[in-house]
Design a protein around this nucleic acid. Sequence first.
DNA 1: CATGAATGAGGTTTCATTCAT
DNA 2: GATGAATGAAACCTCATTCAT
Lengths: 233, 233, 233, 233
Amino acid sequence: MSSFQHVDEGRSPADASTPAPAPAPTELRGRNADRTQAEILQAATREFAAFGLGGARMERIATSAGVNKRLVYYYFESKELLFLSVLEEAYARIREAEQKLHLGDLDAATAVRRLVEFTWQYYLDNPEFLTLLNSENLHRARHLQRSSRIQEMNSPLVALLRDVVERGQREGLFRGGVDPVQLYISIASLCYFYLSNNATLSTIFGRDLLAPTALSERLSHMTDVVMGYLLRK
Amino acid sequence: MSSFQHVDEGRSPADASTPAPAPAPTELRGRNADRTQAEILQAATREFAAFGLGGARMERIATSAGVNKRLVYYYFESKELLFLSVLEEAYARIREAEQKLHLGDLDAATAVRRLVEFTWQYYLDNPEFLTLLNSENLHRARHLQRSSRIQEMNSPLVALLRDVVERGQREGLFRGGVDPVQLYISIASLCYFYLSNNATLSTIFGRDLLAPTALSERLSHMTDVVMGYLLRK
Amino acid sequence: MSSFQHVDEGRSPADASTPAPAPAPTELRGRNADRTQAEILQAATREFAAFGLGGARMERIATSAGVNKRLVYYYFESKELLFLSVLEEAYARIREAEQKLHLGDLDAATAVRRLVEFTWQYYLDNPEFLTLLNSENLHRARHLQRSSRIQEMNSPLVALLRDVVERGQREGLFRGGVDPVQLYISIASLCYFYLSNNATLSTIFGRDLLAPTALSERLSHMTDVVMGYLLRK
Amino acid sequence: MSSFQHVDEGRSPADASTPAPAPAPTELRGRNADRTQAEILQAATREFAAFGLGGARMERIATSAGVNKRLVYYYFESKELLFLSVLEEAYARIREAEQKLHLGDLDAATAVRRLVEFTWQYYLDNPEFLTLLNSENLHRARHLQRSSRIQEMNSPLVALLRDVVERGQREGLFRGGVDPVQLYISIASLCYFYLSNNATLSTIFGRDLLAPTALSERLSHMTDVVMGYLLRK
DNA sequence: CATGAATGAGGTTTCATTCAT
DNA sequence: GATGAATGAAACCTCATTCAT
């Protein structure tokens, strides 16, 4: 799941050729509800990330999870609800990882640099997150809007960032008038767009943007951009 | 047939719907081929933007263009080639609009500010551009890679931006070590992500990011970010 | 297991929902088998009546009976055998109710009038009976034909009616040549069709056939028809 | 289609064994819209009559009509709309046949007798009509209620019958207070129920109600019932 | 007695595309 | 240049039923 590989959104007779990832066998699963659900979710994440909501195939998800197709419906009711579960899981994971940064324990400037690095590395390591979000945005967040957990999952992040910004400002380090939400969106923007749109960008600029040196140059550039904005002149 | 004969060549985008003066009919029953193709392309752009490549329906495209489904195939051969034509058109339009900015005639700082404003406004006015790119990226730029026109369409932009950056540096205004491609990608990032991911962002932050004041705040924030990075301290 | 052990045996229909006195538990964990079976049958009757045999869902029956789906199979083996049990129950109930009319104790004309009224009211009060019969007829009585109890359940009715008719004839009141089976079928016809086909009839005639006045007019009309036929001129 | 044969309403894995009627080949149909639609309708009528709405299989309908399954959707959009078309056709046919009786040209008593005979014979010859109606009633006339044609198709019948009744009354032949709609429903009842419920009736009474003598006895009985009611004593 | 987990078969519907005119 | 008729493949989803406890 670590490579930027996707195919289709919607049905197209010709695209069934991608070999499905081998079913995770681990230990001959059976009659273990939690385990089975987790495996379905994993498989679904891979599938939705690779093909989008419309392009994903319930059949492939089931096979890849090593279960009967019917069982996917037994636990998740429909493709759309499965997709929502996948989205919620994906958000839960990144927010959880962010929590572990303990940004509140770092000084303001370091905290922001750390967040930029983390965001960049997280997107690099979990490219499925970007694709899932793109799919959900194509559908105007229709699924997330039905989620009760999603807002509460994200509010701690904003609170944390607000704290960091205020500390930086009290120390006379950061400029005034910084909206933490805008700041977060900008950090995400710089990382997200580069990776999510890497395929078209590499093509139109004729330059491999995923080459190792390109990646480290990007991180350094983004840090410069963010800190250049935040730090007082 | 893989590349589309632009019906609006030399005419302003706004009058695409004005009935073109009838060309001398080649045959007695001759309808208007160019006109029909343009209408199909318009309809296809709307459809692909709204539903993605896989989600788009040839049927709807035909209906929306007011032609028979068979005719779409007659002119564009397949859904995928139609999609490529749509993409090429979309790139052609934005690059053409950028050319008209005449950034080369402005002083460096103004040129960059102008580019940020333009990019922001263009994305706002042409949201289909974002969705089309997202779709193409889901497909790993599979279609654009087959296009012969796409790189040459984008190189003038990079050249132009390189010129602007160098002028700013020579004047001692801009910092050193600025890669024009990185800069362009960052500007695009800031505008693109906010709008393309607006649906999920608005949902998780519980805040309407498309409200008029939100939009103008975003533009001002982005300009601060870009100029904060570029301008020497 | 193909025939159902009647839980209400010897008890009045109205107290079927009253908790039966707990029978001596055969095992420590023993629940109440009869009670559970009765609840399944009730739920199944509702379900089959509402959706027909094919449209009925074992899942819904189980849920509605408050038991596990597997238990339905434990007691009734299959959907078809469950349906047969439901049918047998339904016939048993109406024939039992007819017995209670004691038509043999009434004079012939009154007995017939009473039977018309009863049939009408019974169909009105137990619409599920009509739907169940329709379903079974769609299946050409495939299930009932396997029932051993069904004919014996219905023969007393014919005998009774034959007796009534003969009494009426001996008294010089009724016309000659009356086949009691034909008579019974006609009485049932007049009541059944009006109610069973009420939905289409109301629609094609644009008239609410279930309105209270419509109902009482129908009863009076049917009585006129039946007595008009029977009574000597 | 002239025998009372039906199987299922709803899905049941085991019932696909009935051999589908051979596709009507006539003259190697192809590219004839009207003809194709008519053949689909015919096949659908057979299928819905034999298996009910839920039990009918689109696959079988297509095969039986000698067309591709997709084409059925091309012309009729969905199973439910196809079912509605079938119903409308069925009503159109019986009402048309009734028109041809020219009851207005007969004297009142003869007209009623003729109507009883006709109804009886029509139901005998077109048993699918009864099954279709039963299915539609199971669905509470959900489909017919969306039909714009259905009421107007049926009103001439009522008008005609009203005329007949009034003529009979003016001649002093018929009793007073006869509602033509009630009368029509009663005539239909007597014929319909006997045939529609023949399977269960034959089973519970242990008597073949479709035997030729049984049929003619029934007609004679029904005529007696209807005329016994109408004619003044 | 009672249950949650799991399944194979098959149903309706959708879609890109081609045929015949 | 333009079109309505027709199709094969496959997708989502449903259902009665069985397995294992």
